[in-house]
Computed example of a mutant assay.
Amino acid sequence: MSEIIITDLVVPERLDSAEAAEFHAMVTIGNRQAELDAGIDDLSETAEELLPSWRDQTDRSQRGFIARRHGEIVGAAYLSTANDERATSADTGVMVTPAHWGDGVEQALLERVEQTARELGRSSVQSWTLHPAASNGRMLTPTTGWGRVSTTPLSELLIAHGYVLEQVERNSVLPLDRPLTMVAEKLRAAIAFAGDDYRVVSWTLPTPEHLRAGYADVISRMATDVPSGDLDIDEEVWDADRVVRHDRNIADGGQMLSVTAVEHSPTGRLVAFNELVIGADRSGVTHQFGTLVVKEHRGRRLGTIVKCANLLRWRDIAPGSPKVSTFNAEENRPMLDINEAIGFVPASYAGGWQKKLD
């Protein structure tokens, strides 16, 4: 077997420069692997969308690795860590060209990212795998007991290296090429149910200055208020300055993002939000980023309000987008109930894996 050479990824300043070849290769290999594993082509990303967050590492550090054999790029991996000194976990992903899967490239990359995580003092590593909607025989059940996923070469790799499947998420899609009658009906009923203490607030990035602190606060609750099984989720500090950086990175990647939130009028706090984003190709798939209702305001149909209001708003913002794609934990029945009621259907699944490091 010829030697596998792994080097640190060169993060380019510009994507049209000679030094951007590795970055482009990583994105291409990752998209191909996602398509093969999930069985759909809805989940691809572009180098333009990803580069800003790799260039601005104020809040999270991104490290990349490139695998070569005979000088040819045959795989890549990344390690993402929060810069907060209290953080204990690391997120990783391994991707290999189909022709070289099983040749030892994937093992070499995984060992490299685990070694780096240990050097950074992290106590756990997490990774997400994609899986088709249809079963293929052998099925895996997470420790939460909610949902199942079929095996893939990547999931088999993680199992062999001591990773535990902690959670399953459902990827659902909603077609946008039809009237959103049910969405409008659900929104009207939810607003009436919530009552006068709650009002809808919406904006398209950049976030208005007077909303930045509230937006930061509700984003930070994603680490504590979203079901995550036994995954070690680090709390991250968000403030108005981080929201400005977040908005700038989205815009610099050519993306457009709409936020619909609910404000609790007696306190002036944002207590729920939903984000929809689309890439530079405004006729492409829309993706939902965050959706959350903070714990103390649940049971008032605020999740329905932010989801439905943002969907109706989105028809004017990106009328050429054919569908919305979203991920939700299988144990998060309240959100899945909302999705199903307005027409979302399963498209693929994701598995959340974790390994405790020695």
Rank of each mutant, 00 (worst) to 15 (best):
D42N: 07
P227G: 15
D41W: 00
L109E: 08
V113F: 10
G137P: 05
G195L: 07
D217M: 11
T207R: 02
E331I: 08
T141Q: 13
T267C: 02
L211Y: 11
W101S: 11
S258F: 00
A190C: 11
S44R: 13
Q115F: 03
V324K: 05
S2F: 08
E111P: 03
I338C: 02
V271D: 08
T260M: 04
G343C: 07
N310L: 09
F23T: 08
V293K: 06
M182Y: 00
T286Q: 05
T181S: 12
G147A: 04
N332T: 14
V11G: 06
L51W: 01
S228I: 02
D103S: 15
G343E: 07
A99H: 11
L9M: 15
D358E: 12
E185A: 13
L109P: 09
Q354V: 14
R148K: 10
G104D: 10
G195K: 12
S124E: 10
Q107A: 13
A25Q: 09
N339I: 01
R269I: 00
R148F: 03
K323S: 13
E169I: 00
G343H: 07
E330V: 13
N332Q: 14
E106G: 15
A21D: 10
P142R: 05
D103L: 11
L140C: 01
W54M: 08
T224H: 10
G229Y: 05
G195P: 04
T97W: 02
H246N: 14
S127C: 14
V294T: 15
E330L: 12
A223C: 12
L36N: 06
D41M: 04
I73S: 01
K295T: 15
S89R: 13
V271R: 03
N136I: 06
V11Q: 04
H70V: 00
R55Q: 15
E114P: 00
E185T: 14
M335V: 12
D337L: 12
L50P: 00
A38M: 01
W314S: 11
V125Q: 03
A25K: 03
F327L: 14
L174A: 03
P319A: 07
D16V: 11
Y349P: 03
I342Y: 05
S135A: 15
A134N: 10
G30E: 13
S123E: 00
R282F: 04
S220T: 03
L176D: 03
L311G: 07
Y198Q: 05
K295A: 15
P142C: 11
E166I: 08
A99S: 14
D217F: 07
D56H: 12
H246W: 13
G254Y: 05
L187P: 06
P266F: 03
G214D: 12
S283M: 08
T88Y: 00
P179H: 06
I4N: 04
